[in-house]
Design a protein around this nucleic acid. Structure first.
Lengths: 233, 233
DNA sequence: CGCCATTTTGAAGGTTTTCAATGTCAGTGG
DNA sequence: CCACTGACATTGAAAACCTTCAAAATGGCG
């Protein structure tokens, strides 16, 4: 067997595995609102890629060419400030859709994988065609927009009005709720992101996050199983 | 002339003044995207009401029955927290649309007038009919949704990452930009809201707001004309 | 096992909040 | 006209919380 054949065989295998019919995130994603014909169409023009930890998906300032769907793994959406600091807007989970949240022609935020992640991408034009002819998809996207506004409003309250420990508890509870939504046990929870990411998300320093977690342990509010896994009491 | 005639005459006068053709906020509002037929329709089913300072427009938890459009004056959108504190999500200016930002059937935030304000309200069903048959309106509403997401993202960075003085400067600059957008001079600016509102918006206390303004004056970053009017240098 | 990245802990310093008092200003009544 | 009132804003001092800088501990991986 020639080297090329082996490569083609692997690509073929990869493409088989990437099929929408085998997608475990389908139920929670925008694709779950599509009929069979539409899914077939998506299957034909989508591109599925495996990302490794910290691998960029898009950068703020890049021209918007694609929408993305998280198939597995996690993603962080963040913005780099002029002084080099990072603010993390949110963490994405399987089924989450990204790239739509702008009326600009460039991305306002950057996105990168946390751990291994499978991400589907859709060329804007092709996805928009699909959207244009499907009230179900349009409705779902609009709903997700509203949810994002609501989410950002809650987040600004958490950041603006809560102390470090309370921000952490809200964060853990949100992860718990998110897990429930995608069919995972809501307790214990795992933290795919590191402490620095939690800090950049909750507008704290890594030290304050660490101390907060230690105190929540002492207060019996949580119980750490390991560094990235915990029970919420 | 009977008392009733006088009343009817006043109502008639009021209704004449409220006509969309005389609306100074039309250019900046969703109505600016409508054709003549659509505006005529809106004119027929809209209701225009004058609100006084601190008068509520809707409460969080109320069933969503109407959308609103700010015709003149200002509005604050806020949420009361369990412990009684207030977080102000944003201030609205003439041309701003409200009520759409939820996939819930109840309002998530409350709204009340700051000073005198004229607000148009539209019954959901009637406005949705209009929206359904107009891609222009749908597109504009979607655009405003994206802008709201972008706005909330910026706001969470301001609250999370900036010191009191910088939050205040960003706040003043935003007001300046908003004024420019609706055709008012962008410098000096006026502050329709009081210090407590600024504090509840920027996630500070009233004392910190006051001290911050005093320091910005000393730093020559701003120049106060009076308590609610200032130059940005 | 040892290395390096990540996390935790410690101590000092900085910013904002809290509590308290004073100042300002517009409206009201003597 | 001026003192009084009440709402709003400013200032002061102490305390709380978080950050910063520094060091130690942990943990994954070659």
């Amino acid at each position: 067997m020639k080297k090329n054949d082996l490569y083609n065989q692997q690509v073929e295998k990869q493409s088989q595995l990437a099929k929408c019919s085998l997608c475990s995130a389908k139920r929670f994603s925008i694709c779950g609102k599509m009929d069979e014909t539409q899914v077939k169409k998506v299957d034909s023009f989508k591109r599925t890629k495996n990302y490794k930890d910290k691998q960029p998906i898009f950068f703020q300032g890049d021209p918007v060419k694609s929408y993305f769907n998280v198939r597995s793994g996690n993603v962080k959406i963040y913005r780099l400030l002029d002084d080099g600091r990072m603010h993390i807007m949110g963490f994405l989970y399987p089924g989450d859709f990204m790239g739509l949240s702008s009326d600009q022609d460039t991305y306002l935020n950057s996105a990168e994988a946390i751990g291994n992640a499978e991400i589907c991408s859709f060329a804007i034009s092709e996805f928009d065609d699909l959207n244009k002819n499907s009230p179900e998809i349009t409705k779902e996207l609009l709903k997700r927009n509203f949810q994002e506004i609501e989410f950002m409003q809650k987040q600004s309250i958490i950041i603006g009005k809560l102390h470090a420990k309370d921000r952490l508890m809200e964060f853990f509870k949100n992860i718990s709720a998110q897990r429930k939504k995608i069919g995972l046990p809501d307790n214990p929870i795992s933290l795919p992101m590191n402490r620095q990411d939690i800090a950049d998300y909750l507008a704290l320093t890594i030290e304050t996050v660490s101390r907060g977690i230690t105190e929540l342990k002492n207060d019996q509010k949580i119980k750490m199983i390991d560094k990235n896994k915990l029970y919420i009491n």
